[in-house]
Design a protein around this nucleic acid. Structure first.
Lengths: 122, 122
DNA sequence: CCTTTCTGTTTACATCTGTAGTCAATGGAA
DNA sequence: TTCCATTGACTACAGATGTAAACAGAAAGG
């Protein structure tokens, strides 16, 4: 069971999933292009993630190098599951239906998903 | 933009979406079959939802009748959108792919979704 | 050597959440 | 009329979260 990751923490994880290991400063540099957090904030988030054992630390002289300990896929799977369970009674179909009705699905999306499903069956 | 609804609040909303208007006690009775919350807790959650203008109140003598002010569909659409945006870069296909890979999709699910997509195109 | 600069650690603090307890008014039972 | 049960309002309080400042040790520059 992966520990819960908050929204802000998730931003940090995305950076590390894209590239790692990174120092706190490097993470901050990446993240700052999106959000406007101070270096301190990024450090706090990294500590919290380290405490949760979601990122690992490796000493490099006087500083740390941070890397994810949880794979993005594993994490996403868990989160998706919880999401679908909570809002759609565990069924994916209503979710897709919903996104479709809300015009969130383009024709291309539909084609893509159909293709995907075909592969799944094959 | 619908105000953020917390997990506990969402439970309450589900009850009201199923049936409304209801008194606090009635909501508590419904909800208690699932969760084990005290009446007080339910009342607090109802107040918070009322403050956020997500449920409306209508006086009925000395008590209130509560009803949702936000449609379930609208709410779900918003939440789904945010979810897909945040975790899958706004694309639904990766989400479906993900659920599929995690064996979350049964053959029946796949058939259902295909059917749904067919209708969408038609 | 002393001062500045990195970097992690500690502390802070407001807001949100989950989960109630308490209070005061009020309406119904006796 | 007196008292109890019901109901909303107010208060509480710990843990999570977002957002950081302050501090302390080390490294590097002068």
């Amino acid at each position: 069971m992966v520990e819960r990751i908050s929204d802000a923490e998730h931003e940090i994880m995305e950076v590390l999933w894209k590239q790692s290991p990174l120092t706190a400063t490097e993470v901050a540099d990446q993240v700052v292009t999106e959000k406007d957090w101070s270096l301190q904030t990024v450090k706090t988030l990294l500590s919290r993630l380290a405490t949760k054992a979601v990122v690992g630390t490796e000493r490099d002289g006087r500083r740390f190098l941070y890397s994810p300990l949880v794979e993005r896929d594993i994490y996403l799977a868990g989160v998706s599951r919880k999401f679908v369970d909570r809002l759609f009674g565990g069924k994916v179909t209503p979710l897709v239906a919903h996104l479709a009705e809300a015009d969130e699905l383009s024709v291309d999306d539909i084609r893509e998903i159909e293709e995907l499903l075909r592969e799944l069956k094959g």
